[in-house]
Design a protein around this nucleic acid. Structure first.
Length: 494
DNA sequence: TACTAATTGCC
DNA sequence: GCAATTAGT
């Protein structure tokens, strides 16, 4: 009589440092590695670009698992029902998984765990996808952290769990076709030129970054026309590499090469931002739908569908904004600083609800992460607990001149402006007519005039924040949560 | 006078 | 982080 163990994989598509998979390999004579395209209520389905990455990552994982003698089973539906079916059809003795932290996900997993226990099956969940479990780190008052810096200081004092080795192989199996209902979208070929998938590619990316590029990271990371960023985010998103692996590999590299230690510390602080986002996701409810500062529920967001459409399509008339939005559409990614710039423009200059921008990123980014994406949007929008201050409104011209002074980034993604001299590249509407003509630029024809006046919209954003504050200080007659009180800031269309 | 650098207010 | 203001050359 053989017993079967299920390792239910989610955002942990790797063999090394995968406690659920390792436990399953130890426990069962037969192991089913299960991936479910979930339709359960409360589980946010991946966006289109992430779904594309996921498909290829699963194919890679399937080959890697086959070398271990483990088959990958991919299903679509409610995970509880799918696991119940597998339990019924196989002699399943145990089900293991690595934890996830969104409130809806926690509920789904808890319900399945209860069912398994009632069936008399063994089940266990493991920490594997954050540096430290959200309940294992707290302020001196025992509260969840709301400010990053003390979180980071505290995290650095902690012993981060060591990554696990890859489990040893069983009898090899022939790979079976997987995920057969997947149809490659029409834009996939375009994205495909930019990426490698899977655990091996992730490890190679990390090694290359630590060997050759990390020293330039602290200074270079702000310049979009450079390759200073690590390139690890989509690998992390799907758990092709774990944050603990990155932590320990980088820490080791810092010990071997002390001259890199400061740069590696900066890199690891950015990795800690990811953990901080998960900390917020676990403790603060669904940060993708609810502002962490409740007063932002009363913000007078504008509808402005035409302006939102211009933003999504990279046709705002603001070159570095359009460059970023086009990079996103073409590659499924966007340089970090430019993410901040386009988010600031949307939520402050255009006063459009950060959730709409978050959803666009969710659909378009291959690395759109359940915690980092909404937490970062709330950070820029000002509704986060440790957010950028309301008055930090980025000027795309100033920022472009500072961080893309030579214009390489804008010229690559906005080629219709390529012939403009640096002086006018970030503000073509201020260029003299003959400069535009010489560059073959006709504003409103070959490239849009700006859809928003930066100066006036900045004042409008400050006024909207002031209205929020007045509303917040006013007597709380409107205890109707989620309903903007009449006469508050909600109708001020400034 | 013309420019830059430093300072400060901004719910 | 921006922009208006002030101080400095």
């Amino acid at each position: 009589m053989t017993s079967t163990t299920i390792a239910w994989l989610r955002n942990d598509l790797r063999l090394t440092d995968n406690p659920a998979l390792s436990a399953a390999m130890r426990a069962g004579t037969r192991v089913i590695a299960l991936y479910v395209h979930e339709t359960a209520h409360g589980v946010r389905p991946p966006g289109a670009a992430a779904r594309w990455w996921l498909h290829h990552s699963l194919q890679t994982l399937e080959r890697d698992l086959a070398a271990l003698g483990v088959e990958l089973t991919v299903r679509t539906g409610e995970p509880g029902g799918i696991i119940a079916d597998l339990v019924r059809d196989n002699t399943v003795a145990a089900v293991f998984w690595n934890r996830r932290y969104a409130p809806g996900e926690v509920l789904v997993d808890a319900a399945i765990k209860t069912w398994l226990i009632n069936q008399g099956l063994a089940t266990q969940s493991f920490g594997a996808n954050v540096l430290i479990e959200p309940w294992d780190i707290a302020t001196g008052q025992g509260q969840p952290y709301s400010v990053f810096t003390p979180f980071w200081k505290s995290l650095k004092q902690r012993a981060i769990a060591l990554p696990l080795q890859q489990p040893s192989a069983r009898l090899p199996r022939q790979p079976q076709p997987v995920d057969t209902d997947y149809r490659e979208p029409c834009w996939a070929a375009k994205l495909g030129g930019h990426w490698y998938f899977g655990e091996v590619a992730a490890q190679r990316t990390l090694a290359d970054f630590l060997d050759h590029r990390v020293t330039n990271y602290p200074q270079g990371r702000d310049f979009p026309d450079s390759d200073a960023s690590s390139g690890l985010s989509p690998h992390l998103r799907f758990g092709e590499i774990s944050p603990r692996q990155i932590w320990h590999t980088a820490t080791m590299a810092a010990q071997m090469a002390p001259e890199k230690a400061a740069a590696i510390d900066k890199f690891l602080s950015e990795l800690a931002w990811r953990d901080f986002s998960y900390h917020q996701l676990y403790h603060r409810g669904d940060i993708a739908t609810e502002p962490m500062q409740p007063k932002y529920g009363n913000m007078a967001w504008r509808e402005a569908d035409d302006e939102f459409a211009a933003w999504t399509s990279g046709m705002t008339g603001l070159p570095i904004i359009d460059a970023g939005m086009r990079e996103l559409w073409e590659t499924g990614s966007m340089h970090n600083r430019v993410r901040i710039l386009v988010a600031s423009l949307l939520t402050k200059n255009l006063l459009i609800d950060w959730r709409r921008g978050e959803q666009w990123f969710w659909d378009c980014l291959v690395d759109s992460d359940r915690a980092s994406n909404p937490a970062s949007w709330q950070w820029v929008a000002g509704s986060g607990l440790d957010a950028a201050p309301y008055f930090r409104i980025f000027n795309p011209v100033t920022q472009g001149s500072r961080f893309d002074a030579a214009g390489g980034y804008v010229r690559r993604w906005v080629p219709e402006l390529a012939a403009l001299p640096d002086q006018w590249l970030h503000n073509p509407w201020e260029a003299p007519q003959q400069a535009l003509a010489a560059a073959g630029v006709r504003l409103g024809v070959t490239y849009p005039a700006p859809i928003v006046d930066l100066k006036a919209s900045r004042v409008r954003a400050l006024e909207a924040a002031a209205a929020l504050q007045r509303n917040d200080l006013a007597p709380k007659r409107a205890s109707r949560i989620g309903i903007a009180p009449a006469g508050g800031g909600a109708e001020s269309s400034a």
